[in-house]
């Protein structure tokens, strides 16, 4: 690996950002490949323990999007 690339765990709401990500895919838009998506049923499902668990397991960033 020549250059360090961050791993970003993203928690996306099924109805909002996950849809937006899907649409971005359908529209063949380009975005950084550092994003690892986890779909959650609603942003209300988010819990601080998810964010801490992601960081503990070695994620470089956490992104929560509703």
């Amino acid at each position: 690996m020549s250059e360090w690339e961050p791993k970003i765990v993203s928690f996306l709401c099924n109805w909002c950002s996950y849809g937006a990500a899907d649409l971005a895919g359908v529209g063949r838009m380009e975005y950084p490949a550092n994003i690892r998506v986890i779909r959650i049923p609603c942003t209300g499902r988010m819990s601080p323990k998810f964010a801490l668990a992601a960081l503990r397991e070695g994620a470089d960033g956490v992104w929560v999007s509703g």
């Binding site: 993203s10 849809g19 971005a24 975005y31 992104w63 509703g66």
Partner: peptide, 21 residues
């Protein structure tokens, strides 16, 4: 990071994903 993106806002999704990265 926290953000709020509607399912129709694919351009905003790409923009925020780039910013977060």
């Amino acid at each position: 990071h926290f953000s709020w993106i509607s399912s129709a806002e694919s351009t905003k999704f790409v923009k925020v994903a780039t910013e977060v990265t």
